[in-house]
């Protein structure tokens, strides 16, 4: 039994680690803290292994853990006034300044723009536009109505679009 559990945990860790790392970054966990929060995620996953339904996508199950840990992290970061401002990540401004952004710069710019969202909107945006999670599942995960999810997505898209433009303007050479 022990071997079975260990094997299950290893499989979940092995399969899910890249996705968890990526999701935490998308959800606003800073690069320097991603490893620590990832550790928290898998420590939370371990005692809940029995809850996993193999007929459902592993990623969506893991996302729930990542979402909650990232949310806790953001609250802590907020309390500690560690939410980064423009001055703390000048590289992103540089990224935004490039007219033809490479993939990496594009990713950084997007993640930076997502910072403009409140955490719930950010989660919704990530689930729908990056993870292709259907709105009914998002609603169930977040305990919202589908209409609320849709409305939040509309506002989020407007806000992120505006933030991308703002960052690009700000970084543009004068």
């Amino acid at each position: 039994m022990r071997d079975e559990r260990a094997a299950q945990f290893q499989a979940v860790f092995r399969t899910g680690l890249p996705y968890v790392l990526q999701s935490l970054r998308r959800l606003g966990v800073r690069e320097r803290d991603v490893e620590d929060v990832t550790q928290e995620v898998f420590l939370a996953v371990y005692p809940r292994l029995g809850d996993y339904d193999p007929s459902r996508p592993l990623r969506r199950w893991l996302f729930g853990f990542a979402r909650r840990m990232a949310s806790d992290y953001r609250k802590r970061a907020s309390v500690q006034r560690e939410v980064l401002d423009d001055a703390q990540e000048p590289r992103d401004q540089g990224a935004a300044a490039d007219e033809r952004l490479g993939d990496q710069a594009q990713r950084r710019l997007l993640l930076r723009a997502l910072d403009a969202l409140d955490q719930r909107s950010r989660e919704t945006f990530v689930m729908y536009y990056l993870d292709d999670t259907p709105t009914p599942e998002i609603a169930a995960e977040l305990g919202d109505s589908e209409d609320a999810v849709t409305s939040r997505l509309r506002r989020a898209v407007e806000k992120v679009t505006a933030e991308v433009q703002r960052l690009q303007r700000k970084a543009a050479p004068r």
Partner: peptide, 11 residues
């Protein structure tokens, strides 16, 4: 919007 879709695709 196309500009944002491009960033999302990269991510």
């Amino acid at each position: 919007p196309p500009a944002l879709a491009e960033l999302v695709d990269a991510e």
